[in-house]
Nucleic acid binder design. Structure first.
Lengths: 231, 231
DNA sequence: GTGTTAATTTCGGCT
DNA sequence: AGCCGAAGTTAACAC
């Protein structure tokens, strides 16, 4: 990895056009040729960048660029599209390279899959007398997250999201339409379960007779832990 | 901005739990206290990070950490949540700081907002006699991009996309259904406007009586420029 | 500030 | 390889 601190201006041309005026920034050139341009603030997203696969070529500045104080020009061309990045370097404060090797990668825990497992294990969170039929119940248009029965024995399809928005309601609606055409399953009611439900999604869901349930991940995990402690 | 190249392991605990095994990486500490951990590949997204507002404290490694070869520990705590990042540094290959100053920021051109503004300013692109009612017309299920009236005075809802896909047609359909239930607005017709419209989206739209309009960004900008030149 | 949508989204899983 | 959905999404913008 090459790390350069330099005063530079940048132009991107591809899916859109973008320009960065002259300022001092950090330029990162990774082993795969990708380039990141960071300022001293903002978030993890660079001001500008080129994703791999791409190639970086260092070319000589032309006459007018030299007159403007440009000492080097980087042309970063994407391998499979017309996306192109042009970095004009003025003063270079630092230019170093380091051998980092291949990264072993990130290990994650606590995403939607986890939420689905916890709700399936504690299905009575949806109401007394609820019983799990199965997780990932397959339909011709995709898997329903959880299929269960309520206290009265009626079938209930559950769609789980971390953040419940309109897309999730549409998804559940499609499943319900399809399943209610199946005389063996019908009638099937819907539950939209999420850690957070957007007002617009709630409006749409309730308008369609779908119940909304807000899940608390820590509560579910808490039940899980306390139950484990009993054994 | 501080840039460190070091062999390190990282633990994140907050919205989820994540762990990075020992390896050599680039650590970036920005002026606002945010921290980015990059490997020599992937894309612009760091392996792990902490977004501002947050504070970074360098603490002494405990006895067992010293035994493992840890020379320093960074604790990065988010200011408004329980999100925390713990970086255990082993060998430090490089540790430099640079004053970058405030960045003037990126100038973009050619995104959807720009397209929407241009079409609103030149609403007769949709037909002679069209008049703008308003942009971002709010409904209970979200904002309609543009609401206008045709030459006959009938209300028209416009959905704008850079790339016209089926999702966009579904979105507009929902708005139209809702608005046509409102006796003050009905009847409302729809226009699906995009720089590029997929054949499937066009078929679906036209089947539902929604007119499709392909927008030419450069043309709209051209009109804009020539009009500005008149004054 | 809250809330919603777009993004040069990126990333992962599955068909 | 393409499609679909999630993400510690982040960023811009309207109310």
């Amino acid at each position: 990895m090459r790390v350069v601190i330099a005063k530079c201006s940048v132009d991107y041309d591809g899916r859109l056009t973008a320009h960065l005026p002259l300022a001092t920034r950090l330029l990162m050139v990774k082993a795969d040729g990708s380039v990141l341009i960071h300022s001293d603030g903002g978030s993890y997203k660079p001001l500008n960048w080129m994703s791999p696969p791409c190639a970086m070529a260092e070319v000589e500045p032309d006459e007018s660029e030299v007159a403007d104080g440009v000492t080097a020009v980087w042309v970063v061309q994407h391998a499979k599209s017309e996306d192109r990045l042009r970095v004009r370097l003025h003063e270079v404060h630092s230019d170093t390279s380091h051998d980092l090797g291949v990264d072993p990668g990130l290990v994650k825990d606590g995403v939607e899959a986890h939420l689905q497992r916890l709700l399936a294990e504690h299905i009575t969170t949806l109401g007394d007398g609820y019983t799990l039929t199965r997780r990932e119940f397959m339909t011709p248009i995709g898997p329903v997250d959880i299929l269960c029965k309520d206290a009265a024995g009626a079938t209930v399809a559950v769609e789980i999201k971390r953040r419940g928005d309109i897309d999730g309601v549409e998804q559940l609606t499609r499943y319900l339409e399809l399943m209610n055409r199946d005389t063996h399953l019908a009638p099937v009611t819907g539950v939209f379960a999420a850690q957070q439900i957007k007002p617009q999604a709630r409006t749409l869901a309730e308008d369609r007779g779908i119940r909304c349930v807000v899940l608390d991940y820590d509560d579910l995990k808490g039940i899980d832990n306390s139950e484990h402690r009993l054994f």
